[in-house]
Write a protein that binds this DNA or RNA. Structure first.
Lengths: 305, 305
DNA sequence: GCCTCGCATAGTCACAAGCTATAGAACAAT
DNA sequence: ATTGTTCTATAGCTTGTGACTATGCGAGGC
């Protein structure tokens, strides 16, 4: 059976055309080289060298074989490089799911950064309802999710990649538009627009329990799946809402965002299954963490100014 | 050092995902397979399989490596095929030189046939003066020459690939135009247009000695290198000439070709050096010989009709 | 004609690939 | 739980073969 050894020996001999020198380059002695070349020729059924006892030269077939075995080694080296890169998470494929409500904040930052640092990774991004995200991670359908911290995390790894306070959004001409900070107690009686508990349990529970803690039972007049839609509907005068601060980035002129007293902090996390061995997960998470540190640093810089 | 054996084992295991079955397919027992896979992983520095004691599956890197090693084996198989084809003379490069005077007869027939049968051979055709052809063969500059049989053939192999009688060409309005066959004795006093002895010794000597045998000393009034030019000049009334029959194929309306009594036969041969090991020479010569047999068969068919 | 060069052959050694036997983990069935 | 089954890994031995040294032998050079 022909092995890479035979091809290695052949190529060095083809380059030197001298058994002694080739053997020296290969760190073996001359007789085994003679023997291995003879075995190679026998296995191929083709004479690769014309050799008198004095001179060695390539046959036509040998010349051809020299060119072609170059491709064999290129392919082999490429295979090794790719395997290493893939194992390190520098190359491969990564499916990332994200909640639409992070599309104005951390998701673009993180994914742009990752794509720039790891161009050999084929990054597949898909907007997904929070409800489905955890399921996709469990099933292995997606590798990483960017979502609000889920309540049940058994078998999952999470890391915080974004934190922001919740704010209240007010419709045009609302009685509280003049205020700097709003106490939730003042929101009693307002119509609240909220995501359904089924779709985004963490977010829903956070808002409800925050209100209850401040003595208000929110009057949920409208259930809407997406944060963006909620803000739009507030703009249409359908009610008020408590949403993550980054929703301001929608820059909808009809709405007003106001800080809340003792505002709850919402946490966006990257989530992955700890027995999912796609090595790109590690590089992605590392990159996302760094992106968050950069954002935090930029914010404290802003505050100082 | 990683050998093809490791890659072969890896690929079968990657396909079966079962050490026992893979080992059986490879006609080895299971323990050495485990060991060789472990050695491969160690040499690469990459885990290729996730294996519990119970289940085997590919890692990301392993999946990638499986794809890439496919290319390694493709390249290797290609190299083997090409080496075999080259050794058999089915592929490669062949330089063929030919005299322009065969451009109306055997050269197109032979080369078209060869190109059709051996499409993988890169055939390099070059028109060459007979003088230079032998030299090109000796020096290895060309592999095969198509030419009139040379006088000195030491170190050369030759094979006849075409035979044709010489004919006399007459200018417009010549006194002998009405004759069916011409006796060379009747050509006494005519101006002969002949190739210089230096350029095509075989052809020159054949014509001169033929004339002498028939009691005529040819009056060489014009020396012209190429047969085609000679026929053209006969058409211009510059003299008469004795040329190979296939020169009729020029279809020059001003000239008249007449058979000669006891016409000498000119032989076109393929010539190659017997220590030139280009395997395409063998296939080319074989093909040329067959082409000649076909032409002969077609001729005797014509005569019968 | 002798010497040198350089590839091939002969004979020996050692390493590693392969074998058998078995341990030990994971899962299934009772 | 317990036992059986199914796999992979490990241990220890055997053997094939790649590599080494010594030498043969033909081709050129002096």
């Amino acid at each position: 059976m022909i092995e890479l050894r035979h091809l290695r020996y052949f190529r060095v001999l083809a380059e030197t055309l001298h058994f002694g020198k080739a053997a020296e380059l290969l760190h073996i002695s001359q007789p085994p080289l003679s023997r291995q070349i003879a075995l190679l020729e026998e296995a191929l059924g083709v004479k690769l060298f014309d050799r008198s006892r004095r001179r060695v030269e390539l046959t036509e077939a040998g010349r051809r074989f020299y060119l072609d075995t170059g491709a064999v080694f290129s392919a082999f080296e490429q295979a090794k490089r790719n395997a290493l890169a893939t194992a390190r998470g520098d190359a491969g494929e990564l499916s990332v799911g994200f909640m639409m409500s992070t599309a104005y904040s951390i998701t673009p930052t993180v994914t742009r950064r990752y794509a720039a640092h790891y161009p050999q990774v084929n990054l597949k991004l898909a907007e997904t309802l929070p409800l489905d995200l955890a399921e996709d991670i469990y099933s292995g359908n997606k590798d990483v999710a960017i979502m609000y911290r889920p309540q049940d995390c058994t078998g999952l790894e999470t890391i915080t990649i974004f934190r922001e306070p919740m704010m209240v959004v007010l419709p045009p001409g609302h009685r509280l538009r003049g205020r700097d900070v709003i106490d939730p107690a003042e929101l009693a009686g307002e119509i609240f627009i909220v995501t359904p508990k089924r779709i985004a349990p963490a977010l829903h529970d956070m808002i409800v329990s925050y209100c209850l803690q401040h003595g208000v039972t929110p009057n949920v007049g409208l259930e809407i799946n997406m944060q963006q839609s909620i803000v739009n509907l507030v703009g249409e005068g359908m009610g008020i809402a408590i949403v993550p601060r980054s929703m301001r980035n929608m820059r909808l002129s009809t709405t007003t965002f106001k800080p809340l007293k003792n505002a709850p902090i919402i946490e966006v996390v990257a989530v992955w299954k700890n027995d999912n061995h796609n090595p790109c997960i590690a590089t992605f998470v590392e990159s996302a963490e760094q992106a968050w540190r950069d954002v935090e640093a930029a914010w404290s810089e802003e505050e100082r100014c």
